[in-house]
Nucleic acid binder design. Structure first.
Length: 571
RNA sequence: CGGAGCGUGGCGCAGUUUGGUAGCGCACCUGCUUUGGGAGCAGGGGGUCGAAGGUUCAAAUCCUUUCGCUCCGACCA
């Protein structure tokens, strides 16, 4: 058996917070010697960090295998052809690292593997008898993120478990999807994480249903709306709330008003003494090069994801200064829907019957009041475009209200449908000998992000507190002092516990007690056994449970039984 | 890409405003003491001050360019 003595372990811990980190998991992963940065969003994992990763991978494999998924390993280097076939070469665009080989053939480093899987199975799967199938892998993904952040939370290189289900029809997909949903719940639970499934947007993956698995943490980059009464939980990108339409029942004629240098809703509220609900906010965005004005109430915020989905656009960005003139014949701060030419106007459904509204006049320093929808302007469509807010009424049940919390997306599952199989001609023959596209799903878990999420959820002022299922070691033995008897006893206990099947780390370094105590807390090992002259005289060692930092004396004579008992109690 | 900030021994920082012999703490090496909560004393090693160019008798410090990193916004596991 391999001896893991701390004197030989490559574990460079840091006493001070590194200046490059300011999120707790990032700081602790560096301080605990789990990893080191190579470049922005790219890390080397050191022995301790890699051990945790392997633990999570093992748990993931177990539940994937139990769900009848089969592990494969797909190429990291992928030809541009398959991406062009699926029509995502441009969609993923700058997110992909692209390069040419010596024969001038173009490749990318795989940011995800839908294309490869579809390409792989399309020649092998000929009949409905070959389906269903679920293939998964655990592999490094490369995405040239716009902004890598928070250490391993948003890296440019990260380890992901990705699975792809292949079914004959949507009914089969529903089953495959549910199986993955269930497996995910088990995986996160076994990793000791509190994760919740929420309704999600499908983004660049496409498809219809989608759930994200979120670990609630203040440092999370996602906002999630939860109903306090029913089961409803959704990413705010998608969440909807019950809001009444706005109508001031005011038929007065439209009127132009001078509003010098009044550009924001707040300024207007003050200047006109009208509530924000009376204003219409027109947000100028350019979607795939096309000018769009999105209308929401002055008291609401535009939800860009909802807009992009309505438009079926690839890219959405705010209009630039010059574009207000060129594309909108308007001016920043005074844009409005009345007489807005050659611009697609999409409005939030709350504005459907609005009257008596105030809008920009498309002229510097002027607004229009008493504006009425339908009479003074037309829109292409009324649809849900607003971002939900804390406390609003739930759209699923009548009596609940929405709470908004931050979360870290650790898993995401998609019902892809036939988008890839159709674009890439992955067909099978059904019972009637008729060619049908394979119905697909895709399922991801960010393994390395999960490590960070686990730390975000389990830490204190002293360091990491690993849930025992993913801890790099379950037990750490501190051997204090230079006394020969202590060294011998420590070795003995160490060997016994190893033989009993535990993963044990022995701190045999020539360090002072304080250093050992602090390092053991920093690296978050669930159970610590301290062996020193003070306790040894009385035939006991001191145990400390990292979870609650409680200490107790245990007798050396029946140490194995006592350790088993303690480990069992630890979560 | 837009906005903000930072690059000085391995790590954390001071020094830059006002140009004039590169410093502090931690870590590291040697010796002695200490030894259950990040030790003490003594001695020691290590930095072309992110890079390039310029101004100057003289540049970490002033100017120009450039690269990297972090944070705030749009992307995602």
């Amino acid at each position: 058996m391999i001896k893991m003595r701390m004197s030989k372990l490559y574990l460079p811990t840091l006493k001070e917070d590194p200046s490059e980190a300011d999120v707790v998991s990032h700081k602790l992963m560096l301080r605990a010697g789990m990893m080191r940065k190579h470049s922005a969003g790219i890390y080397s994992y050191l022995p301790l960090g890699y051990k945790v990763i392997k633990k999570i991978e093992k748990i993931t494999r177990k539940h994937m295998d139990n769900a009848q998924a089969q592990e494969v390993l797909l190429p990291i280097m992928q030809t541009s052809e398959i991406w062009k076939e699926s029509k995502r070469w441009d969609k993923f665009g700058p997110l992909m690292v692209k390069f040419f080989d010596r024969k001038n053939r173009e490749y990318c480093l795989g940011p995800t593997h839908e294309e490869v899987v579809t390409d792989l199975v399309k020649d092998e799967i000929r009949s409905y008898k070959d389906l269903p199938l679920n293939l998964y892998q655990i592999q490094t993904k490369v995405r040239d993120e716009i902004r890598p952040r928070f250490g391993v939370m948003r890296g440019r290189e990260f380890i992901m478990k990705d699975a792809y289900s292949l079914d004959i029809d949507y009914e089969g997909l529903d089953k495959s999807y549910q199986a993955m949903y269930d497996a995910y719940e088990k995986i996160f639970a076994e990793c000791g994480l509190e994760a919740v499934a929420v309704e999600a947007d499908t983004g660049a993956m496409g498809g219809k249903d989608s759930h994200e698995f979120m670990v609630l943490a203040d440092s999370g980059e996602d906002q999630i709306a939860f109903c306090d009464s029913c089961e409803y939980a959704a990413n705010v990108e998608r969440a909807s709330a019950e809001k009444t339409n706005i109508d001031f029942e005011d038929d007065a004629e439209i009127e132009k008003i001078h509003t010098p240098d009044i550009k924001t809703i707040e300024d207007l509220e003050e200047f006109l003494a009208y509530p924000a609900a009376r204003m219409i906010k027109a947000v100028a965005v350019v979607a795939d090069g096309e000018a769009v004005a999105a209308l929401v109430s002055g008291e609401d915020e535009l939800n860009e994801v909802k807009l992009i989905n309505y438009l079926k656009a690839n890219e959405l960005r705010a209009a630039e200064e010059e574009e207000f003139e060129e594309l909108y014949q308007s001016t920043a701060g005074f844009i409005g829907p009345v007489n807005l030419k050659n611009v697609r106007i999409i409005a939030d459904k709350r504005l459907k019957n609005i009257s008596g509204a105030v809008v920009g006049a498309n002229e510097k320093d002027y607004h229009l009041k008493n504006v009425k929808a339908g009479r003074d302007f037309e829109v292409e469509a009324y649809t849900d475009l607003r971002l939900v807010k804390e406390g609003e009424r739930c759209s699923k049940c009548s009596d609940g209200h929405l709470n908004i919390k931050a979360g870290i997306e650790v898993g995401h599952i998609f019902k892809l449908g036939t988008k890839y199989s159709e674009n890439m001609q992955a067909d099978y023959l059904d019972e009637n000998g008729k060619s049908q596209p394979i119905v697909m799903g895709s399922y991801g878990i960010g393994i390395t992000r999960l490590v960070a999420a686990a730390i975000e959820q389990n830490n204190d002022e002293y360091g990491i507190i690993w849930p025992k299922s993913i801890a790099p070691y379950q037990i750490i033995i501190l051997s204090l002092g230079n006394d020969e008897e202590i060294k011998v006893k420590s070795e003995e206990i160490y060997e016994d516990l190893k033989t009993a099947g535990y993963e044990v780390l022995l701190d045999d370094r020539k360090e002072r007690a304080g250093v050992k105590f602090n390092d053991s807390e920093l690296i978050g090992i669930p159970l610590r056994l301290t062996i020193g002259s003070r306790s040894l005289e009385n035939g006991v060692v001191e145990a400390m449970i990292r979870e609650n930092n409680k200490k107790l004396k245990i007798e050396i004579d029946n140490i194995e039984d006592k350790v088993a008992e303690l480990i069992k109690e630890i979560s």
